[in-house]
Amino acid sequence: MNRPELFDEDFLKKLARLKWLVQKTVYSGTGGEKSLRQKGGRLEFSDYRKYSPGDETRYIDWNIFGRTEKLFIKEFAREESFPVYLLLDTTTSMKTPGPARNKTKGIKFKYTCQIAAALGYIGLITRNRLQLFGFSDKTLKHSPVFQKENQIFGALKFLESLIPHGETHLTLILNSLNKQIRKKGLLILISDLMGFQPASPAGKPESESLAIAGLAPLSAGREILEFVRRGFDVSIFHLLDQEEEQPFAPPWRDGPVKLKDSETGATKTVFINKKIELLYRQTLKQFIEEWHSFCLQHGIKYFHVDTPAGAGLETLILTFLRQGGLLK
């Protein structure tokens, strides 16, 4: 078995044609600021930019100058091997909604694993190093570093070993991860981000204990930005289930509904009506937009992903991630 059975042959062929699009500069572990594209390896045309004094004139595109009488410098990128870190949310919320949709781990978590497998496969096929992390409670479980294409099975085995459980302590996990990984690279976080805002609400103290108690949301932005600051190319897959976005199908009903948090067990009684439904959707949309805006502001690639009803993975990988600038 040379190929993961998770995907069909055609999809794998399509995955094999994909490459990482790394646009950010990342920090090397030791030296000053360098661009990945300036490091060794095969040079490949990357882009044009306006000529600035001091640029080498041999890279001026004279053809363009002849047509536009403006000076443009051709940029070249060098393909470089870099680590790909996939950080997977394996808390209880990832298997919720419950067994009605998925009898074991939940459809959200299954989709998380599918995305991780696909991205991991791309990582290995492009000869990058791949390391998987799964976090729940305050524990960070990590896989070995995979470097070869045929090690995808090891990655899949690791994914299968993950069981969603426990609570989310994203800030602690990110902080811990930040200390664990030295080599900068591509960091992809797949999570529902429930309980965490990109920034703490104005005028409110940031307290994890309050957040865990369900009394206040916690900001995870600072920890993420730390990765950005270190030169990581960070992508966030904000994975939400359809039932989270449209939760009002039976057994939901108008009137009092007692909501139980799958992670903390905290309960809250709400009174559902059309107005509340609308307000919920607006708040959820605002939550998503906050993350989107935060990522956009800090050069983080943000993908709001809904668990698909059918074969949405292919569309996600082949279309959305390319459009989103993660792959090319």
Partner: peptide, 24 residues
């Protein structure tokens, strides 16, 4: 119908944000 039905959801995070509106 007056007795609330209990539903387990991934997180009550969003509902906390609209806590004021969802009270009885």
């Amino acid at each position: 119908r007056m007795k609330p039905v209990t539903i387990t959801i991934p997180s009550i995070f969003i509902w906390q944000k609209i806590s004021a509106a969802t009270s009885e």
